[in-house]
């Protein structure tokens, strides 16, 4: 009994650190939350104010004169990059999982899976380096001008096609970072489907691809949704790669898919240096508010994914009993 209590106490460091992070962020950013109010989320204007003038007192807190913190452009940037990443990662991930599970023979499947899953192990900053050195020149000079010329009639595809830094580039790099999660989850689920289903559908006269596309894949819909939500969670919080390829736009909403953007996570890194110059500390506290928003968003996503997967587990257990 004593041993269990001791172990429980040491184990408590893990939950304690999470609670500490969230509590601390809330307490620390509280003055900023009160100062910024609801404008924080809907205003498109991040301005540290005049840092060299004497601080003024607004609503009981000291701030630099002219300071205004609004992060609408960051929320839009974060959601849009995630959306673009998802639009690329989902079809590619599902396709790759299908081919890996159904068409690649044993030994080769192991190594190709390893290569695809290695994408998840590549450090964010190395993705950034690759994006900066290889992807941006290629996209900016070749693919984007081509896309804007050919698909200019599609909304948001028209030029100017920019320099290569921006929404589509960030979305592409992010999609490679989240796709292994989708591939691995889906492939494992497909491989562990009972062979009887496959045999039955084949006996009914389906081609091999029809078995996969019309029976196996639809039956794994919830698994796919769960994996996708987790992937969204990862994309929202990615920092370094986005920081290096997004163009770090400030107070600017993208007008097409090539436009520079910034995300909440990348913004914290790129702005902390200048925020520290604020003698009133309100800028750093406002960054803490961004971090808090970002954490709450990931928590929400995480719970959503668990909910979907929990329902999946329950229905799966139900199916085996019946």
């Amino acid at each position: 009994m004593k041993f269990k209590t001791g172990l429980a106490a040491i184990a408590g460091v893990l939950p304690a650190s999470l609670v500490a992070i969230v509590l601390f962020l809330t307490v620390y950013s509280w003055p900023a939350i009160r100062f910024n109010g609801f404008h924080f989320l809907v205003s498109n204007h991040w301005n540290l104010g005049n840092l060299y003038a004497d601080p003024v007192t607004v609503a009981g807190t000291q701030v630099a004169p002219g300071a205004h913190y609004g992060i609408l452009f960051l929320i839009v940037g974060t959601l849009l990059t995630t959306l673009v990443a998802l639009l690329i990662a989902l079809p590619v991930g599902v396709g790759a999982a299908i081919f890996l599970a159904e068409a690649v023979p044993g030994r080769l499947r192991l190594w190709l899976s390893f290569l695809v899953e290695l994408l998840a192990a590549v450090p964010s900053v190395v993705f950034g380096l690759w994006g900066y050195v290889v992807v941006i020149p290629f996209l900016g000079q070749h693919l984007f001008p081509f896309l804007s010329r050919i698909f200019g009639f599609v909304p948001f595809f028209a030029g100017p096609s920019g320099s290569g830094y921006g929404l589509l580039t960030s979305g592409f790099v992010l999609s490679l970072m989240i796709v292994p999660l989708i591939v691995a989850t889906l492939r494992d689920a497909m491989v562990s489907q009972p062979p009887a289903i496959r045999e039955a559908v084949t006996a009914l006269g389906a081609t091999r691809f029809e078995v996969v596309a019309k029976v196996i894949l639809p039956s794994l819909f919830r698994v796919l949704v769960g994996a996708t939500i987790l992937a969204v969670g990862r994309a929202l919080g990615e920092t370094m790669a986005v920081l290096m390829v997004s163009g770090n736009a400030l107070n600017y909403l993208p007008h097409n898919i090539y436009a520079p953007i910034s995300t909440m996570a990348a913004f914290i890194v790129s702005q902390l240096d200048s925020a520290m110059q604020d003698p009133t500390g309100m800028a750093v506290r406002s960054l803490a508010e961004i971090a808090l928003m970002l954490s709450l968003l990931s928590l929400l996503i995480n719970f959503l994914a668990r909910l979907v997967l929990a329902i999946e587990n329950r229905s799966a257990r139900h199916a085996t009993i019946v």
């Binding site: 964010s124 990862r234 919080g237 902390l272 971090a291 995480n302």
Partner: peptide
């Protein structure tokens, strides 16, 4: 209940963006 709590919070902690951890580290 403690084990279930730890398991849940471990999964949540994985989802906390790394920059948030770094930022809290800076401020604290």
């Amino acid at each position: 209940w403690w084990a279930k709590t730890i398991r849940l919070l471990a999964d949540v902690l994985v989802g906390v963006p790394s920059i948030v951890v770094g930022y809290v580290g800076y401020v604290t």
